[in-house]
Every structure is written in C-alpha cells, then in structure tokens.
Write a protein that binds this DNA or RNA. Structure first.
Lengths: 240, 240
DNA sequence: GAGATTTGCTAACACCGTTAACTTTCGGGG
DNA sequence: CCCCGAAAGTTAACGGTGTTAGCAAATCTC
C-alpha cells in the first residue's frame, strides 16, 4: 500500500473540490469587480461556471456563506498586500514600514474599490460581534499587521502613548489584550492603535466611497497630510 | 369662481397625493429601521399600506427613485438636526456652535444607524457625481451647515488656513466655489472644510459601521479627542 | 463488481422589480 | 345635474433572485 494511494484518491477528490471552491470565489469576485456587488448572485456564478445554481449548495450552505467566504479571502489578500509592503522596507525602521503599509492600504482600496466596499461598508453588523472574537475575526488578520508595527514602534521608544487613559476604557482594552497572541501589549499602545486605525479608516473610506468627489479629483495630497499627522501622533519624525 | 375653489379642489387632490407620498416614505423608513435596508421593498411597503406593489408606480417611477427620495428626505432631516443644534448656542461663538454641530452629527448617526448607512455607506457611486452638482446635491444641504460655520469662524479671524495650497487643487477648489451660493469663500477655507469633513466623516463612520466594536464598547471619549483635534486645527482654543 | 458517497440536475416555491391592460373612483366643466 | 376624463387602484404576467426536495449519474471504497 503506497502511502500516496490511501490519501491519493481522497486527496484527488479533495483537490478537485478545493479547485471548485476556489473557482466559485474567483468567479464571484470577477462579477463583483465587473458588475458590482448586486451581481454576485448564485445563478450568475453558476452560469459563468457552466452549472446550475443549486449545485453551488454542495460547496456553500447559502448565498450568505459564499459572500462571507469571499470577504474572508479578500481580508487575507489585503493582509498579504500590507505584509508585502512592510517587507519592502528594513525591519529597523518600523516608522517607515508603518507609513508605507498605510500607503499600501490606501493604494489597495483605490485599486479595488468594490472589494473595499464589500469589506468595510457593512451597514450595521447585526449583533454578531462578540468582543472576544477579535483574534478569530477575519478582519483581524490585516489589523494585526498594523498593530504589530505599532508595538515595534513603541518598543523602540519613539512613541509616547497617553498616560491618562480614560478609566472606563481599561476594562475594554484589557479584554482586547486577552485575545491577542504573543507577549502582552501595553494598554496604551492598544489605545493608540485604535485611535490611529479609526483615523486611517476614515481617511481611506471617505475617499473610496466618493464622499470627496464633489470637491476633489485627486485627494492624494490630503491623504499625505493625514498620514503625516498620524505619524506625528506616533512620535515619528517628519521624514519623507 | 372663488380663488380657493379653483386651487381648492385640485388642492385637495394634491394634498391627498402628498399624504400618500409621505406615507410611502414613512413606511419605507420604518422597514429600514426595523428590518434593514434589504427589507425596503416595493411589495413590503405596499403590503404595509394595504395596497399592491404596482400601485406605487403612480408615485415613484421605480424602486431606485423611491430609495432616492427617502435618502433625500433623510439628508433634510439630518440638516435640520444639525441646524437645530447650531441654534442652541449663541451666534457669536461659532467655534462652540461648530463643536456642538459635530457632536450632533455623531449623535444622529448613532441613534439612526440604518439611516446613516443608507446615506453614507454607498460603495462606489456609479459615475453620477458631476463635480458641478455640488449645490444641487441633496447631500450638500447638510454639508452647507458645516461650511457656513467654518466660513464664520474664518471671518472672526481665529482660523489660520494653510498658505501653501497644493497647486493641483486650486482648479478643483475654484470649481467648487463656483457652485456655492452667497459671497465667495476663500479657497483655503474650502480646503479646510474638506479636510475636516474627511476626518469627521471617518470618526463617525468607523464607529457607526462597527469597525471599533472589536475593541471598544464606548468610543465616545475617542470621538471627544478627535473633535478636540479638529477644533484645534481650526484654531479654536481648547475650551469645553 | 456492489454499495455508498458525492455531485450534478430539474422542478418547484416564495419573493423581488417591472410592465400591460383593465376597473374603479372622483373632481370639474358643460 | 350629469357625464367625461384623469387619477389611482386592481390582477396577470415576465424574468430575476435564494432555497429546498427529489432524482440521476458519476465516482470513490471495499
């Protein structure tokens, strides 16, 4: 009994199945890009793949599940893009790394507006966000890239976190820290992360969602100023 | 022919029609609040009103038009809430007025999350935003409240707008100014308005859309800091 | 090769937006 | 007053959606 035969056949099936799963997501994403989120339909995906809609239920339990798998995949892709941007700069310059990761986030959002909308324009997530699920939340996979860099920045001593944390936050931040991997992160850094994330998200979202179209055709300089402010708040010199 | 009879009877019909239009929007909004945006359906609205779906076409040309009328109404309501907040404070303290208007924006967004999502979470407005439509854009009705206060703040001399505007912006900002009513606004103030609006939108959206839920159960202090920063950027003393 | 599992199909249900054709209601001019 | 015409509502239907049930074929396991 060759070792490949036992798992070979089931492995073959598994491989075919995995390929089908991937093609479904690939097709759904193409529809998302080319025709918008409302076009990502079970029947449309099946049509593109030469199948019928009910067949897709062998792979995803519902339309909702399929969309969720797609968003999860996109979170991973975004995290990979950010990681790649991080690795393009030396590890001993965490400030520069963070700046370029932020720039990459905006770049990715602008070059993938439909995907960004799917990930970040969720009007009111209906009561499924237990705060404890931070580490398992798909969205955390890319948030961790930012947090790690901020922790590194803090270790180097450049950052000066606020010393007077709002008392009502300590409990909440401690709960977040509980669910983070690796060695514990000081609460102040988590606070700085949250504040910077809020600002970064706002700067990117306001642009991608078109809320500046009425005024600006090229908001890049505005983002530059915002990023400059963020880095200054993190104690980074004004370089670059 | 009494003057009231000519317009009185047709006025009656008009009044009934206006009431129907209003009830449609009222019902649609109730569905939006109670069951989410996907529940705002022609058939559902008609059902709630004891009618059939095609009857609604006597009032709105399409589902899209109905939703658009609803959003337009909501923009007006938001503008009214902001105006009311403004009037609660003396006219000779534009800084305080602006601060409270910003707070009211957050308050309205948090107490009307579904409505806020409908207004501000539009993933990629599909090529219908000619920059010239600023003054006629429904969203401008509430944006004007913010801009007017900033102009007033600038007139009082507290604000120190940047002197080195990015040259590529001058053309764009001038185009915006063309479409503003009243006496001309300096380009620098328009720039400051855009920058502050981007930040304010971000601070509110990140919270309403639930992108801080993983960390904070009460992001109010964070908004307080953000607002403090914004007011400082506008040259306002740290008061309050 | 026989049995079991997986994968696809068709048919059907309820819902959606939208259109066409018909009926009812009702205000206004002779 | 009465009739006419516009306005507002109806039902029936088309194509689209997610979803389920039941069946056929292919494929893996023994």
């Amino acid at each position: 009994m060759p070792s490949t035969s036992g798992t070979g056949s089931t492995g073959r099936r598994h491989r075919v199945r995995e390929e089908a799963l991937a093609e479904i997501l690939r097709t759904g994403r193409r529809l998302l890009i080319e025709e918008g989120p409302s076009a990502v339909t079970l029947r449309a995906i099946a049509r593109e793949m030469g199948m019928t809609a009910p067949a897709l239920y062998r792979y995803y339990a519902s339309h909702r599940d399929l969309i969720q798998a797609l968003t999860s995949h996109l979170y991973d892709e975004l995290a990979a893009a950010l990681t790649e941007a991080r690795e393009r700069h030396p590890a001993d310059e965490p400030g520069r790394r963070l700046r370029e990761v932020c720039r990459e986030l905006r770049r990715w959002a602008l070059s993938h507006p439909r995907e960004f909308g799917l990930l970040f324009a969720k009007p009111v997530t209906d009561a499924d966000t237990a705060p404890g699920s931070a580490a398992h939340d798909p969205s955390w996979r890319f948030g961790a890239v930012l947090l790690d860099l901020m922790v590194e920045l803090w270790r180097r001593g450049g950052m000066q976190p606020p010393t007077d944390l709002d008392p009502s936050w300590i409990g909440q931040l401690e709960e977040v820290r509980e669910h983070l991997a690796g060695e514990p992160v000081p609460l102040e850094v988590i606070y700085v992360f949250v504040a910077c994330w809020a600002r970064l998200y706002g700067a990117v979202a306001v642009e991608v969602f078109g809320h500046l179209d009425f005024a600006l055709t090229d908001p890049e300089p505005l983002f530059g100023h915002t990023l400059h402010d963020i880095m200054a708040a993190l104690g980074e010199p004004v370089g670059q």
